[in-house]
């Protein structure tokens, strides 16, 4: 598969992941129908929750980080999480917008990979690949928090975060593969035919004898540098 195709797939995957992560963030109380979880006439989102009364009316808390009890005239509607955790833990849902932000930056970086200079730069691809690891971790953390808070009562939007996590893992894998292929290409470029053909090859014995006969200034004038037997060299070993 060529790098172009991989890059297109990457952009596609990160876009899907971004969209999947956007949905929980814009869920209740911002939108009426989207919710991370529905339980006991309550709809839960990242920034708040809503209570659906039996008469059809809907009461939502104002958007903030972490849930609070809902006051409707004199009636107090308490947060009733499916997991029975203390509702102060709902502040952990902050990871959702954080993850969205990180994924958004990754998305921009991946779009830049479409440009040839970035696509062929192993260093840039290494940075993107490295960045994708915490992005994946954040996405996974967001899903785990959903599971911790809502358990099996998670709505389809919550499960989309799992899908997003899997997609991010694939993106990570593709980015590391892309970096490897860019690195190999760069290496192969060093030994490309054009480069090799531009180098003149001499026999060492011939040059040695010529160098002894030739005066030092003449080589300078002719523009051909004498090819000396290396006075210094190195030895290294690879395990």
């Amino acid at each position: 598969m060529s790098t172009c195709v991989v890059t297109v797939f990457l952009v596609l995957f990160t876009t899907i992941s971004l969209a999947f992560q956007l949905l929980p963030v814009i869920s209740v109380p911002f939108t009426a129908n989207l919710a991370l979880s529905r339980y006991d006439n309550r709809a839960y989102g990242v920034f708040g929750w809503c209570y659906n009364a039996e008469n059809g009316s809907k009461h939502c808390m104002s958007a903030s980080i972490g849930y609070t009890d809902l006051y409707d005239n004199r009636i107090v509607h308490k947060v009733n999480l499916p997991s029975r955790l203390r509702y102060s833990f709902t502040k952990l849902l902050i990871v959702h917008p954080l993850s969205l932000g990180i994924t958004f930056i990754l998305w921009i970086m991946v779009i830049l990979v479409l440009l040839p200079p970035f696509r062929s730069s192993p260093r840039y691809l290494l940075i993107v690949a490295l960045y994708s690891t915490p992005a994946f971790l954040c996405c996974l953390l967001a899903f785990l928090i959903d599971i911790l808070l809502f358990i099996s009562q998670l709505d389809w939007i919550g499960w989309l975060v799992l899908a997003s996590t899997v997609i991010m893992a694939i993106c990570c894998f593709l980015l590391w593969t892309l970096r490897r292929s860019a690195s190999i290409k760069k290496y192969e470029k060093l030994f490309s035919d054009d480069r090799v053909s531009s180098i003149q090859a001499y026999s060492m014995c011939e040059l040695k004898s010529n160098a002894n006969n030739m005066p030092s200034d003449s080589t300078q004038e002719s523009g051909v540098e004498p090819l000396l037997e290396p006075h210094l060299t190195y030895r290294g070993s690879l395990d």
Partner: peptide, 25 residues
């Protein structure tokens, strides 16, 4: 290819050799 990336030592040796060549001429 990563195992021989950068060629730091080789480049150093080449630089020294080139310098020697220049100096001699």
């Amino acid at each position: 290819e990563d195992e021989q990336s950068d060629y730091h030592i080789a480049k150093y040796a080449l630089r020294v050799q080139k310098a020697l060549t220049h100096a001699k001429s």
